[in-house]
Amino acid sequence: MKRETAIRRVAKPVIFAVCLIPLAWIALRAIVIGDLGANPVETVNRFLGDWAMRLLIVTLMVSPLVHLSGSSIPVRFRRMLGLFAFFYATLHIANYVVADQFFNWADIWADIVKRNFITIGMLTFIILLALAVTSPKAMIKRLGGKRWRRLHQTVYIAAIGSVFHYIMMIKADFLIAGTHGAVLAGLLIYRVIRRMQKPERAENTRRRTPRPLVA
C-alpha cells in the first residue's frame, strides 16, 4: 500500500512534470528569452517534432527496463509517456497547420499526398491518435485484450515512422537523426533477441495479462 501511494502521489506527478519541461522551455524561449531566432516557425516545429519522437522512443524503453530490472513498476508510467509523445506530436502538427501553413488546407493536402516525409509523418500521427484514443483501461475491456494488444503493437510502426519522417527531411547532416534511429534500432533488436531466446516465456506473458504496451 505504501508503495502504491509513492507511485501515485510522487512518481507519477514527478514524471508528468518532467515531461512538461520541454514545453515549458520552448514557451520560456518564445515569451521571455526571445531566442527562437529568425525563423521561429521552423524552430518550434523542429523542437516539438524532436520531442514527440524522443518520448516515443522513451516509451519503448519501458519494456526492456522491466525485463532488465525485474521490477514491473516502470510499466505504471508507460501510458503517461506514450500520451506525452502524442501530446507533442499534436502540438507539432498544430504548429504546422496553424503557423506554417495558416490553415491552407489545399497546400496541406498537397503536402500530405505529394511529399513522402509528410505522408509518413501523418500516418505516424494517425497511429498515435488511435493509440491515444484507446489508451483508457476501459478500452482494453471494450476491444478485448488480444485486439487491444495487437492495435497497440503498431507503436513500433509509429516509432519507426517518426524517425523516417525526420531522416527523409534532412539535406545532409544525419548525425542527430541517426543517433535517435540507432537507439530505436537497439530497442527493436533487443525485442527480437529476447523473443528468439525465450519464446515460451513471451507466449505465457502474453496470454496471462494484456499489459498496456504503450498508452
Binding site: 518564445a30 527562437l36 529568425a38 525563423n39 521561429p40 516557425v41 521552423e42 518550434v44 503557423a99 506554417d100 497546400d107 498537397a110 503536402d111 505529394k114 511529399r115 513522402n116 516525409f117 527523409m168 527531411m169
Partner: peptide, 15 residues
C-alpha cells in the same frame, strides 16, 4: 521533397 511555390519570409514573426 517539398514545394517551391511559396517561401517563408525571414523576420516576419511567428504568425
Amino acid at each position: 521533397r517539398w514545394s517551391q511555390a511559396k517561401e517563408r519570409v525571414i523576420g516576419q514573426g511567428y504568425f
